[in-house]
């Protein structure tokens, strides 16, 4: 292997999807290329994180979810890839855990940071804003501790 492997090759290598010769060449390249080894390790960590999330979120899926996962995969496979990067992600070896994780995350649901890609607003903001405004009411305490002092280690209330 004379050039650096692509991200898609890393992903396929990680999931044992490469042809034997290509697999061996990439393994040999990784031995001697520090930057590719780091890129590969990034893929490993990402894959493990997705797997861990899927395992942690594991629960009995509602009827139809399994079918919707396969449907998502099949339709993804039918569509032509619009970038090589995306094509890499849609390979079955990757698409299955990714699609599963996304569907499970959507099922796990409301409050997830993966909510439709829209920003989420930390509940602390609403609680702080409400507390600050209670001082507009006679004899209320108002802000007892300003947010500015609530570092993570102080945030005992946040669990």
């Amino acid at each position: 292997m004379t050039s650096h492997p692509s991200q898609e090759q890393f992903i396929d290598y990680l999931h044992g999807e490469l042809a034997p010769g290509e697999d061996a060449a990439l393994a040999l390249h990784l031995e001697g290329c520090t930057s590719c080894r780091e890129s590969y390790q990034d893929e490993v960590r990402l894959s493990e994180a997705l797997g861990s999330y899927a395992r942690a979120s594991e629960r009995e899926l509602p009827p139809g979810v399994r079918a919707s996962i396969w449907s998502a995969i099949e339709s993804a496979q039918r569509e032509p890839s619009w970038t090589q990067r995306l094509a890499g992600w849609l390979r079955p070896a990757v698409a299955i855990p990714v699609a599963a994780a996304l569907v499970i995350a959507a099922f796990a649901g409301y409050g997830s940071t993966l909510h439709h890609g829209s920003p989420t607003i930390d509940a602390a903001y609403y609680l702080d804003d409400h507390a600050a405004l209670t001082s507009a009411v006679p004899f209320n305490e108002g802000t007892i501790v300003p947010t500015a002092l609530f570092t993570t280690e102080n945030a005992d209330g946040a669990q």
């Binding site: 909510h115 989420t120 930390d122």
Partner: peptide
């Protein structure tokens, strides 16, 4: 007192903490 917050940009409340 009670505060009502609302947005219509699909921005959910993050309760993960």
């Amino acid at each position: 007192t009670v505060s009502l917050f609302q947005n219509e940009k699909d921005a959910a409340v993050d309760l993960s903490h």
